[in-house]
Write a protein that binds this DNA or RNA. Structure first.
Lengths: 294, 294
DNA sequence: CACACTCTGAAAAATAATTGACAGACTCGC
DNA sequence: GCGAGTCTGTCAATTATTTTTCAGAGTGTG
């Protein structure tokens, strides 16, 4: 009894295949279904029947002819197909690493990361993004960066890279006890970039609050849960961070940072290039010095 | 026609927007929903609730917070959005961020990053990868990590995260002048993870060479040009780093790191979990201490 | 023209989903 | 600690949906 349905292939295929064997009313329905595929099939049987101008039993009969036990089973399959179709653009495309099963951590992780990236980037408000890049490109504003337990590495990265492109970039010390003195230094127009993820730290919130009060522009980089700092931030960017592991992925944050960096660099390329050349020369001399005659 | 509910925008947008105002359980659900968007929302409330691990009323409450009168109304809207999304069959993936031209840095950068990821991951030798993860999961080996001018932030990240999962992880100090004393400490069986990108630094090469001589296993994380350290490394992983900018992207490196971390974590999950729980407790107490009675 | 047959929808029965009410668990401030 | 308030799941009521049953309409045939 438990035999599976003979019919295979996508629902659309099955509809085509069996069109010949359908009764007139069923064809009416099948026509409606293919015309409004696949969304029409997601509604309830009653609704679908009304839309197609047939009765509910007809819908059921068609669905059973297609090889499903009932309407719910049909819908489940339809949802699967829709999922596949929505995902296909790039992700399902190719398995990341050949030679290992799809369930290998390499593939699972890669899938998650790609999904995170796609979602993160598609959610960026490009007006915000451009405005923020422009702000960061302004050499008259000083830029301070701070991160939390996990994100301090990212803050560090941002400082290193942004510091290459423009002057006046520094990291806040990691000891929150030294922050008040940093706040004292802060002037209106300065920019505070805050990384704040998941287990939001209260000290960071206070920092952002006070910085905003002192007239600094706060840029918040966070997860989709959105840190409470959001309230004090002029710009907010949320990155997806969930991956198949017990911790959160920073990859999307990294991409966010790098994209911002690229935009800033593009905005004042001449100065940036000049700085980079000079920096390169300095490093050159430093390494000479180190290994040199001395 | 009729005045819409206050909330506007796509369901995904609404979810993002209101994330902040959601309760913990609702966030659980919202997380599941975004992760499996949009298909998860097409199933019945009961099913969705079970999948997300919450109760049906929670689903209903979330949906109402999103501005819908009930679950059916929510589903109707969802179907509309899916329809819109499917209408442009392949062009939908169109571009990462809508509303800006394809030439906008957001899109150009995203394309480059994706290409890097694909290439990086497809080039990983999975046997090597598994072996390396196993080595890193061995708590008897101590792990030292070092990076260069740009990559020290990544090294830092790796130390932070790997240090959560297992004991005996530390960063080498950034001053190369202090490395000899670190080398003195090094024992056969220890692991040295080296990040070395593009402008390969000679001090790092010497470090790796000497570490290998002293019996340490060297893991090299580099770019496709492959650093000269390769000769001394037991494991080599190359990440693609080119992006439309004057510098190199670290995103693929980040993914490499995180994937390794995920593998290590998976390999000795019980211990890792134990460590994480204890660490969490310590952080808890520390924050108590900071803001508490003291 | 009646008979056998298939097709179709109305309506009832069975099943499942949605929603509201409520109470225990939990958190936060005092 | 102890109440006020907030969350969140259990449960039951209501409502909708799916499925079955069945009778009438149509169709072609002897």
């Amino acid at each position: 009894m438990s035999q599976e349905h003979e019919a295979a292939g996508t629902i659309e295929d099955r509809l085509m295949q069996r069109f010949g064997t359908l009764t007139p009313t069923e064809r009416l329905l099948a026509g409606h279904l293919t015309r409004n595929f696949p969304v029409a099939g997601l509604a309830s049987m009653t609704y679908l029947a009304k839309e197609a101008g047939v009765s509910t039993p007809t819908v059921l009969r068609l669905v059973q002819k297609l090889g499903f036990r009932g309407y719910p089973e049909f819908q489940a399959q339809l949802r699967n197909e829709i999922e596949a179709r929505l995902e296909s653009p790039l992700s399902k495309h190719a398995r990341w690493t050949d030679g290992v099963p799809q369930t290998h951590i390499l593939n699972r992780f890669a899938d998650a990361v790609l999904a995170n990236l796609t979602r993160t980037l598609s959610r960026i408000d490009h007006a915000d993004f451009d405005a923020c890049a422009e702000m960061l490109a302004d050499p008259k504003r000083r830029v301070l960066v701070t991160g939390g337990r996990i994100t301090h590495a990212l803050a560090d990265y941002l400082v290193t890279q942004l510091g290459i492109v423009r002057p006046g970039v520094s990291a806040l010390p990691s000891q929150s006890s030294t922050w008040p003195s940093a706040l004292l230094e802060m002037r209106p127009g300065d920019v505070l970039i805050v990384f704040d993820i998941r287990r939001y730290e209260s000290a960071t919130l206070q920092l952002a609050e006070m910085a905003a009060e002192r007239g600094a522009d706060v840029v918040l980089i966070t997860d989709p849960w959105i840190s409470p700092i959001s309230a004090h931030a002029r710009f907010r960017f949320a990155a997806q961070i969930e991956v198949p592991s017990a911790w959160d992925s920073s990859t999307a944050l990294m991409v966010l940072i790098e994209t911002l960096l690229a935009a800033v660099q593009e905005l004042n390329w001449p100065q940036a290039q000049d700085r980079m050349t000079r920096l390169e020369a300095l490093y050159e001399r430093a390494s000479m010095f180190r290994r040199g005659k001395g």
